[in-house]
Design a protein around this nucleic acid. Structure first.
Length: 349
RNA sequence: UCGAUAGUGUACACGUA
C-alpha cells in the first residue's frame, strides 16, 4: 500500500490523476485496504480537478470504513474548498469540523490563512491567525509568513514588520523565508538602505541567510547602480554557498544596466564554468544589455544561440530580437520575424 | 522520505497622473 500511495501521489501531482484512480481500484480489487494516506492523496486529486463533491464523498466514505481522517486529510480538503469555493467557505468548514471534534491542526489553519492572503483578504487572514490561538493551536512561521507576504504585496512593510515582531515575541523562530520577504519588500519600496541594515543585522545574529536573501540585496544594489557593492555581497555569498542561476542573472543584469558589458560577459562565463545552466531570463538579460549598449545584432545572435541550445524563447526573447533587429537597422527582418511569430500563432500582444 | 503549505532575477504592453 505504501508503494501504491507513493506512486499515486506522484501521478496526481503530475496531472495524471486518472491513472492514480485506476491504481486505487486495482488496489481494492486485489484485496488491499487503502489507508489514511491513500484517501488524502485521492482527496487532493479530486480537489485539484475542482471535484469538491467527490472529495467530500471520499472523506465521508473513509469515516464510514473506520479509517479516521487526520489533520492532513482535513487540511487537504479545506485547501481545496478555499481554492474553489472561496476561503470564507473553507473557514466555515474548518470551524464546523472543529466543533465536531475533528483534528484541526496548524496545517488546516495554515491553508485557510494562505488562501485568504491570496484573495488579499488580509484582515480575515489575521483574524484566523488570532482565532487559532484561542483554540489552542499555536501559529507557526508558515502562518505568519503568508500574512507577512500579503502585507508586503500591498506595500505595507510597516505592518509586515509589526507582524514579524509579534511572531518573534511569541517565541516563533524566524527564518530566511520570512526575513527575505520583508527585505525584498523594503527594497522595492525604495527603502533599500533599511533592507541592507536588516540583512546585516540578521546575518550578525547568526540567522542563516540563503541565496534568495542574498539575491534580494544584490538585486537592490544593482538597481541602484551600485554594482560594486553588489559584487561584495555576491562574493561573500560565494564563500558560504554555491550561487545559483538567479544570482548570476541578477549580477549580470547589474553590469548590463551600467553598460559594463565586459564584466557582464565575464559573469556569464563564470556561470558556465560553474556548470550552471543559463535559462531564458539569463539570456534575455544579457541580450537586452547587448542591444541597449550598441550591439543589437550580437543580441539577436545570442538569442538564436539560446534556442539552439534548447532553451525556450518567451515573449521577452521575441521582443528583444525585434528590438535588436530594428536597432541594427534591419527593420525588414524585424518585420519578417514578427510576421513569422504571428503565423506560428504565438501571442504577439 | 506513503500524504499539505511560505521568499528572489529579464523585456514589453497596460492602468492612473
Amino acid at each position: 500500500v505504501k508503494s501504491c500511495n507513493y506512486l499515486m501521489n506522484h501521478l496526481t501531482v503530475n496531472g495524471k490523476f486518472d491513472m492514480a484512480i485506476s491504481i486505487y481500484h486495482q488496489l481494492k480489487k486485489g484485496g488491499w485496504s487503502p489507508n489514511v494516506f491513500t484517501y488524502t492523496i485521492l482527496i487532493k486529486g479530486y480537489c485539484g480537478q475542482k471535484k469538491l463533491v467527490e472529495a467530500l464523498d471520499l472523506l465521508k466514505e473513509m469515516i464510514e470504513l473506520g479509517i479516521t481522517p487526520d489533520d492532513f486529510t482535513y487540511a487537504t480538503f479545506i485547501e481545496g474548498l478555499c481554492l474553489h469555493g472561496g476561503s470564507d467557505q473553507g473557514y466555515m468548514f474548518l470551524q464546523q469540523c472543529r466543533e465536531e471534534g475533528s483534528p484541526i491542526s496548524t496545517f488546516c489553519y495554515n491553508a485557510v490563512i494562505r488562501r485568504f492572503c491570496d484573495e488579499m483578504k488580509l484582515q480575515n487572514a489575521e483574524d484566523v491567525l488570532h482565532d487559532m490561538g484561542r483554540h489552542g493551536v499555536r501559529p507557526d512561521s508558515y502562518c505568519y509568513s503568508s500574512l507577512i507576504r500579503g502585507y508586503c504585496k500591498t506595500g505595507d512593510v510597516q505592518k509586515a514588520q509589526a507582524l514579524h515582531d509579534e511572531m518573534v515575541s511569541e517565541g516563533i523562530k524566524t527564518n530566511c523565508f520570512v526575513v527575505s520577504s520583508i527585505i525584498d519588500s523594503l527594497c522595492k519600496t525604495g527603502l533599500a538602505e533599511g533592507a541592507i541594515d536588516m540583512f546585516q543585522e540578521f546575518k550578525d545574529s547568526g540567522l542563516f541567510l540563503d541565496q534568495v536573501a542574498y539575491n534580494n540585496v544584490i538585486d537592490a544594489l544593482c538597481k541602484m547602480g551600485k554594482v560594486e557593492a553588489a559584487l561584495k555581497f555576491f562574493n561573500e555569498m560565494k564563500s558560504r554557498m554555491v550561487p545559483d542561476t538567479k544570482n548570476y542573472t541578477t549580477l549580470l543584469n547589474g553590469y548590463c544596466l551600467q553598460g559594463k558589458l565586459e564584466d557582464a560577459l565575464s559573469v556569464f562565463e563564470e556561470m558556465l564554468e560553474m556548470g550552471l545552466e543559463p535559462d531564458s531570463i539569463t539570456y534575455n538579460v544579457l541580450a537586452a544589455g547587448l542591444s541597449r549598449n550598441g550591439f543589437p545584432l550580437d543580441a539577436v545572435r545570442l538569442l538564436n544561440d539560446m534556442e539552439n541550445k534548447g532553451v525556450k524563447a518567451d515573449s521577452s526573447t521575441h521582443s528583444n530580437i525585434i528590438k535588436g533587429l530594428c536597432g541594427g537597422g534591419k527593420v525588414m527582418e524585424a518585420k519578417a520575424f514578427f510576421d513569422g511569430l504571428e503565423e506560428k500563432g504565438i501571442d504577439t500582444n
